[in-house]
Design a protein around this nucleic acid. Sequence first.
DNA 1: AAGGATACCTGAATGC
DNA 2: TGCATTCAGGTATCCT
Length: 281
Amino acid sequence: MPELPEVETIRKGLEEYLIGHTIIDVEVRLPKIVQGDISEVKGGKIVSVRRFGKGLVIDLDNGYLLAIHIKLTGQLIYAGKKIPQKVKVIKQLYSSLPNKWTHVIFHLDQGETLFYNDFRQFGWIKIIPQGDLKKLVFFKELGPEFFRDLTLELFEKIIKKSNTSIKPLLIDQKKISGVGNIYSNDALSLAKIDPRRKASSLTSDEIKCLYESLETVLKRGLQYGGASELSYINALGGEGSYQKHFLVYGRQGQKCFNCGGTIEKIQLGGRGTYFCKLCQK
DNA sequence: AAGGATACCTGAATGC
DNA sequence: TGCATTCAGGTATCCT
């Protein structure tokens, strides 16, 4: 669901459409989503949009920022003059906004709008002073991430000292950030490693292969604009297409692309885990 | 202290 | 038919 590629796709969209806009007013329809004093963002101009792991940060020029986590079903949708004409799918969506899942509405200058929708209400939006980002437990405890500060050497160190099986380790945000259920399953398939293997039992060659496989599937996810399972959409309300290219995720009963074996589904660390017993050793 | 289980939610799919 | 149960997964929290 929303993992590094999905959240990064949203970030790019927000960066393209929101920077330079001033927040005129905010409508909070479901108070539990928002923490902090929402009035602090009024009059603030959006200067940058950053991502750390699966978390987003919208920086304002008035000393405050919005820290946002969309969890499983959050959506950040831009509505305004900069929507490209060719995007037609979205017209239906836009005519329905705000809808019953719209919990926060940011009214921007020039009559533009940013909607926060979340049908399962797991996400959060926190308003804090600029310098306090690392005081938030979520950001403070994030592990290193791919394409930023996770090197192969560091990856190997993290895996070797872990006492859990490899798949739950990959989705532990405190160890490595950005990877979730979809990309961890697919990377283990590409690396031909059994998700149940104890992390510390992996050889250096296997760790290198897994590192490269994670980079490959995350890049693929970025290339396809994320995986639109459930309710993930980008900042323009458009869907990604990585779900059409899943290697093992959601493919139980179907054939493995590596060896033709049958993909099985088990529970591991309380999460659906998909793999091929024939080639993932 | 690390790691596992459960709660938080709702809608879709499945069960009887 | 229709109501109840199960499942989905990213944290946050509690427990061992």
